[in-house]
Simulated assay, not measured.
Amino acid sequence: MATMKVWISDEPGYENLKIEERPIPSPGPGQVLLKMKAGSINYRDTIVVKNQYGAPTNRPIVPLSDGCGEVVEIGAGVTRVKVGDRVAPLFFQDWMSGPRKGEYVLTALGGGVDGCLAEYMCLNERGVSKVPAHLTDLEVATLPCAALTAWNTLNCTGRLKAGDLVVVQGTGGVSMFALQFARMAGARVVATSSSDDKLQRAKQLGATHLINYKTTPKWGSEVMKLTNGGGADIVVEVGGAGTMVESLKAVRIGGFIGVIGVLSGGMGEVPTASIMGKSAHIQGISVGNRDWFEDMCRAIETAQMQPVIGATFGFDQAKDAFAAMTSQTVIGKIVIDYSH
């Protein structure tokens, strides 16, 4: 029986990840077998392997929600894809359209079910989508979680319009995608970072205003100055408890804050008066559905947009890739090339 390599997380910590051999699965009715070409790491993956993820996680688990694969075999009745198609697995395997339901979390790759850090994957055909032809395998692998989260925040939930002002925090994967999508839509972007070098990269991608939050810790007030007191239409909030106060200062009256991450902490005081004073719309964002993913892919292809990749590792270097993610020093996405 032919076998494949998979990385598994059984004990907490990325340093305890290990490779094991498993049989290559065969697709049943309605299923497709993918030969995986690449994967990418999100902050969520690091807390899954630390066993600190709030959602249900099976153990042992194959990590990673994000990947790119080629369809190499299909089961009976498959119509969405054919052998030879290049696809991305969807973050939520059962969320096809409409609002999110609680049970979808049980089908989240790399948490509820085994993820993409494997040489082959067998999935239901509805849980994969075709991807933009101009992107490399590594670039495709960045799309399912970070890109769709940014797309949902701006276009599906935030209702982005041309001319809007968007604030992105830092230069990680979601923030860089949000910057690029905002510019694609004709919006202006304020980028914040603790590094002037990283801010210059954001400027190259189209950021119209740059704020170093180490030298300007009250960056919310700085956003208000830049907008003559008007404030930002949308704030892409990836920091969490440590940045929410400044996000509320930065957002305009009636503006939108999309809460995505907890990089600076998951618990803090609730600034109720600021929320009321700004009449702010605040919503947690949890990736997105298949319809939105396919809309996003069409937009990426039309604009010939290319994701920002900051570091690349080989399949056998998965632990090093997790270490790089934990360091929070990489601009854009960290990807894993399965051919190396």
Rank of each mutant, 00 (worst) to 15 (best):
I8N: 02
S9P: 10
E11F: 06
R22M: 00
P23R: 09
I24N: 06
P25W: 02
P27E: 00
P27W: 02
V32A: 07
L34C: 05
M36H: 01
M36C: 03
P56I: 09
T57F: 05
L64A: 03
G69Q: 11
G69K: 08
V71E: 13
G77V: 06
T79V: 08
R80L: 14
R80K: 15
A88T: 14
F92I: 00
D94P: 01
D94Y: 04
R100P: 09
K101V: 11
Y104P: 06
Y104F: 15
L117Q: 04
C122N: 15
S129I: 12
A133G: 09
R159A: 00
L160F: 02
K161W: 04
V168E: 08
Q169K: 12
G186L: 04
S195W: 10
L199W: 15
Q200Y: 12
Y213N: 12
Y213W: 11
W219F: 06
S221P: 02
E222A: 13
V223R: 03
L226T: 03
I234M: 01
E237W: 01
G239D: 05
G240H: 09
A241I: 02
V245E: 07
S247V: 04
A250M: 10
A250D: 08
F256D: 05
L263K: 12
M267Y: 12
G277Q: 07
H281L: 10
I282E: 08
Q283D: 10
W292G: 04
F293V: 01
F293Y: 09
E294M: 11
M305D: 01
Q306G: 09
A323Q: 13
S339D: 13
